[in-house]
Amino acid sequence: MADYSIWVLEYCYVSKYHKSGVLYGAHNQGYVKLPYCYVVIKGRDHVAMVDVGYNDKAYGKVLGDRFGVENWRDPKVVLAEVGLTPDDVDTCFISHAHFDHFGNVEDFPKAKFYIQEREISKWVWAMSLPDRMRWMMVAVDPGDIVRGVGLAAEKRLVTVDGAMEDVLPGIDLHSAPDSHTWGSMWVTVRNDGQKQSQDTWVMAGDLVYQFDNLKSSGAVVDVDTMYTPVGLAVGSQTNLILATEEMMSQVGYEARRVIPIHEEGLRDAFPSRITKDGLRITEICLADGEKSKVA
């Protein structure tokens, strides 16, 4: 029995991203493809998303010209691949406030948004610091926070303080303070609806970029595999490792159940297809009665 279908939807990508950004310490090890994705969770009369991508009108040209981001597609086009429209989305969980995760709230006019309170409060603090500490403000657009004010006015923004159980039936939120960002959050789906679930999926946001963060060579410390954190953390790599351990414990240490959204290798772990626009749709699981969107 499965309550929810889960799809990872690619909405653009960078063809050549330096591997040390993905994997802490992987210097001079070349480049990897970095897909940009959001997650759709459908079931129990809800359509939820983890993150909403960014708005190409605002950033598309800069990202294309300077950073090689390619093939951005509107959520209308991307969601249509799984038979949905942005209007169908009633809930959005924002894993963190970076522009490529929180930068397109306007395209989801009927959704209620959840974000960690700490992500907002520490952002306000970081903005108050001197210019020489500006690095801590990286990749956040004040405009996204302005739009958050609008969502609050419409009573469509919820700030979460730490963990929150059953936000939707069988779906929990967990915080990873001072890790990738100040108030990063992951989403746990207990897909059998049980408290002690045997069918748990974790949407990791940017706490994990790729499967290598969960299982990289442990030769240096004489084990088969070990966790290696992502390269970018305004908090600490230690906190990333601690969050990874907690996520992994939730899924019984079955690494494929922790879903990274910058991972090209999802295609090797789950059924998937490439759309006519050249973007990948990956089907993580299907709810009872749901038809495959990749077959």
């Binding site: 940009y36 950073f67 690095w135 940017d206 910058h262």
Partner: peptide
């Protein structure tokens, strides 16, 4: 915000987001 956005000019360094270390900041 709308006024500041109207005054943005990325080539002159007047830009809302610092992408330098963002996920997309590649080669």
């Amino acid at each position: 915000y709308a006024h500041l956005e109207a005054a943005s000019a990325p080539k002159a360094g007047l830009q809302m987001v610092d992408f330098t270390h963002a996920c997309c900041a590649c080669t």
